[in-house]
């Protein structure tokens, strides 16, 4: 299967601080990939480089074999890579419907169609369409954030810590929805997660990121929870 996303020897950081050093990852189309690692390893930075928020210092990032390192964030989204950030980041004061509407900016002609899809995937949102986004519970906000990402009709959906701070019951609901997404034939998922159980259930492959470098890559079954991982994550 062709790689949808290829990262070669990527170095990136902020100002004088280099966070990622020589990261190389290949992501196959329609696969579900986990990025795990300790705090500060650079996982969020990696996603930000892909989504165009952080400029690479060295190395290549290719989407369907096109060099996308210099793309602006709106071009990245329009091309089909969507980043759902850590911490929900909903638009406070705007309603659920308005948040979702904004998510559909890059594909306005498909808004209605995708909206239906999102509301079917996350029925709770349908109930709360006219409510202000910041009045939702943590879990609902996360669903909103993911739904908002889906509104952009992505080919690659990147989720940064989707279950952080959520109650176990909510995590189960989230897992269900994510499994449904995983089953879609036209979607590749990249998930940054600390929750190992979810990672094992959801993702085929995993990459361990430590101190800005890829320490190990492999099938999730073998890697996650293994001794290898324990060494790296202490």
């Amino acid at each position: 299967m062709a790689d949808v996303l290829r990262i070669d020897n990527l170095s990136a950081g902020y100002g004088h601080a280099t966070v990622l050093r020589g990261v190389t990852i290949a992501i196959e189309a329609q696969s579900t990939v986990a990025i795990v690692g300790p705090n500060g390893a650079g996982k969020s930075t990696l996603l930000k480089v892909i989504s165009g928020l952080v400029r690479p210092m060295a190395g290549e990032v290719r989407f369907r074999d096109e060099d996308m390192a210099r793309w602006s964030s709106d071009r990245v989204v329009a091309s089909g890579i969507v980043h759902v950030p850590e911490g929900r980041q909903v638009f406070p004061g705007l309603s659920v419907a308005e948040n979702l509407w904004l998510g559909g900016y890059s594909h306005p002609e498909r808004r209605q169609e995708i909206l239906e899809d999102v509301l079917t995937l996350f029925p709770r949102l349908r109930e709360r369409l006219s409510q202000a986004a910041d009045s939702l519970s943590g879990g609902e906000q996360q669903m909103l954030a993911i739904g908002r990402g889906l509104m952009a009709a992505p080919a690659v959906l990147m989720l940064d810590e989707p279950t952080l701070g959520l109650a176990p019951v909510i995590i189960d609901q989230m897992t269900e929805a994510l499994m449904a997404l995983r089953a879609r034939s036209n979607l590749s998922l990249i998930v940054v997660e600390q929750n190992l159980q979810l990672t094992r259930a959801l993702c085929d492959r995993a990459h361990i990121l430590v101190d800005g470098r890829i320490a190990a890559s492999g099938a999730t079954e073998e890697l996650v929870g293994s001794d290898v991982m324990k060494i790296y994550l202490g």
């Binding site: 928020l53 964030s73 989204v77 329009a78 909903v90 638009f91 705007l94 904004l102 908002r148």
Partner: peptide
């Protein structure tokens, strides 16, 4: 107008929506 409101509320998220800021 709605887009500009969003940009004012959360510029980071607005960029991630693919809004040409």
């Amino acid at each position: 107008g709605r887009i500009m409101r969003a940009m004012a509320l959360n510029p980071f998220a607005a960029q991630l929506m693919g809004i040409p800021v």
